[in-house]
């Protein structure tokens, strides 16, 4: 065996091949690393300014007469964005409370609630909205555009954005009481 080795031509890996191999390896590591970083970020942190987005509302829902709502239209108001889905059982626990608190604050004009229906079927979503008598603006996010922006980790999740468009508080999971929502709102209102 050793003899065969001795006679074998000692050729190294050509430089071009080395360059390709290392590039591929580094590329793979970068790809995986970036993805890992993205996965580990979790949802958007309080203190972040939320970029603008537009949500098309369900038929029958509107905001100031329009069937679309943009975050930029809501500057100067506290915005409560609630992610939910009709198939989500814990969402039902807080649906009544959300509507209740909304009803209390709606007239002040200082707060806007916005329901975002995460990957859902429209007929079932309507049934859900009707069941809980929800009348604050609601729109579907079937393609997860908005949820991806917030990097939601599940439903329900609620985001409180202040008058300057900066995220102040994130609630993961259902609210236990209406007071919990009120307290958070009162902290943010002048």
């Amino acid at each position: 065996m050793t003899e065969i080795n001795a006679t074998a031509p000692k050729r190294g890996v050509p430089l071009w091949a080395q360059v390709i191999i290392w590039t591929l390896l580094v590329g793979l590591l970068v790809l995986v690393g970036v993805t890992l970083n993205k996965r580990q970020q979790g949802s958007v942190r309080p203190g972040t300014e939320i970029p603008d987005f537009t949500l098309t509302l369900f038929d029958g829902y509107q905001y100031e007469g329009r069937s679309k709502i943009s975050l930029s239209d809501l500057r100067g108001k506290v915005v409560v964005i609630n992610f939910w889905a009709s198939w989500c059982k814990p969402c039902e626990q807080e649906a009544g409370e959300l509507q209740q608190v909304w009803a209390e604050y709606a007239d002040s004009g200082e707060v806007v609630f916005l329901g975002v229906d995460y990957v859902d079927t429209e007929p079932e979503a309507r049934v859900y909205l009707q069941k809980f008598g929800i009348d604050f603006p609601n729109g579907p996010d079937m393609g997860t555009k908005v949820s991806q922006m917030f990097r939601t980790t599940g439903v329900p999740e609620t985001y409180f954005i202040d008058q300057n468009g900066v995220l102040q508080y994130v609630k993961v999971g259902p609210f236990v009481s209406a007071d919990e929502i009120r307290n958070q709102l009162d902290k943010m209102l002048p």
């Binding site: 889905a85 198939w87 079927t121 007929p123």
Partner: peptide, 26 residues
């Protein structure tokens, strides 16, 4: 299934998938 990972809609046991199957039926 749009919310689960790699699960065909016909065998997915969740409530969400049941709803989607009903949507297809409709």
């Amino acid at each position: 299934c749009p919310v689960c990972e790699n699960t065909p809609l016909d065998v997915c046991p969740t409530e969400a998938c049941r709803q989607w199957r009903e949507l297809i039926r409709q």
